[in-house]
Amino acid sequence: MKVLELLDEIEEIVDTSSGFPLTGKILVDAEEILEIVKEIRVELPDEIQQAQWIKDERQRILEEAKREYESILKDAKMQAEALIENDDITVKAKLRADEIIKIAESNVKALKMSTFDYIDSILYNFQDKMDQLNSIYFHDMFTNLQNTFDKVNNTILDNRNEIKEMVYRAQMENED
């Protein structure tokens, strides 16, 4: 995959860059690294765009549920007001209106919960895909980077030990 090749290229740049003695820091061409990062962004999978779609879709579904709730509530109130006009059935009308409102609220709650479940499942799948991408691409990169730092530290330690050995020999020669 192109992203892995670009990450290998960054690693190669880091490995071959000249360093500053005793600091563990290296000198890299920022323009070259930024160009590779731009290429990686271009190559990233469509899941990131899907996340924006999921966000927009969630908002649309919630707004639709709210409109439906308001419409059902408005219809229920209109039916209740029409029934109230007749004095004989006023009590029944109020009971029926309350029942319709409870049903409407129950339907809206159920719709809202199912919408949340749907969005949650989409987000869960997206999160899983992002975890997969992370483990595929970035774990190797960080492992390689850690190995590089370990090698540099070991080399420095070996050099220090060698210098200490040279100092020790020089002291022994001076004592003789």
Rank of each mutant, 00 (worst) to 15 (best):
T16K: 14
M113V: 00
N154R: 14
L44M: 09
I54K: 01
M130P: 00
I54H: 04
R67L: 06
T148Y: 12
R96W: 01
N159S: 15
A76C: 11
L62Q: 06
I156M: 10
I54E: 00
D46Y: 09
S106Y: 04
I13P: 05
D131P: 01
I156D: 11
G24K: 02
V152L: 08
L145V: 05
R60K: 13
E31G: 12
Y69A: 03
Y137I: 14
D88I: 09
N125G: 04
M78Q: 09
S114H: 07
S106P: 00
L6A: 02
E165I: 07
E70C: 04
K38G: 06
T143K: 05
E35Q: 09
N161Y: 07
K112Q: 08
V108D: 03
M1S: 15
L95M: 09
K112H: 08
D29L: 04
I10Q: 03
K129D: 02
D150N: 15
A93S: 14
L95F: 06
A65G: 15
T143H: 03
D120M: 05
D75E: 13
I84M: 12
M1H: 14
L6I: 05
D117G: 02
E70F: 06
Q49N: 13
N144H: 14
K55Y: 05
K129R: 09
I48T: 06
G24P: 04
R160S: 10
S114W: 08
I33Y: 02
D8Y: 03
T148Q: 13
D140K: 15
E70H: 08
I36G: 00
N161V: 12
L22T: 02
I72D: 11
K38V: 03
I10V: 10
I48K: 05
W53H: 08
N134A: 06
A76H: 02
N134G: 04
I156P: 01
D56Y: 05
V14F: 10
S18E: 11
I84A: 06
T23I: 03
F20S: 12
A76D: 08
A93G: 15
Y124R: 11
E11N: 05
M130Y: 07
E99P: 01
E47K: 12
N174Q: 10
D98S: 10
A170T: 13
L145I: 11
I122H: 11
Q146F: 12
I103E: 13
D176K: 06
V28E: 00
I101D: 00
N154K: 15
Y118F: 11
I48Y: 14
S71W: 07
E12A: 15
K94E: 02
L22F: 05
D88A: 11
I13M: 02
E31N: 09
L62F: 08
D87W: 01
T16M: 06
F126K: 07
I136W: 04
R169I: 03
E47N: 13
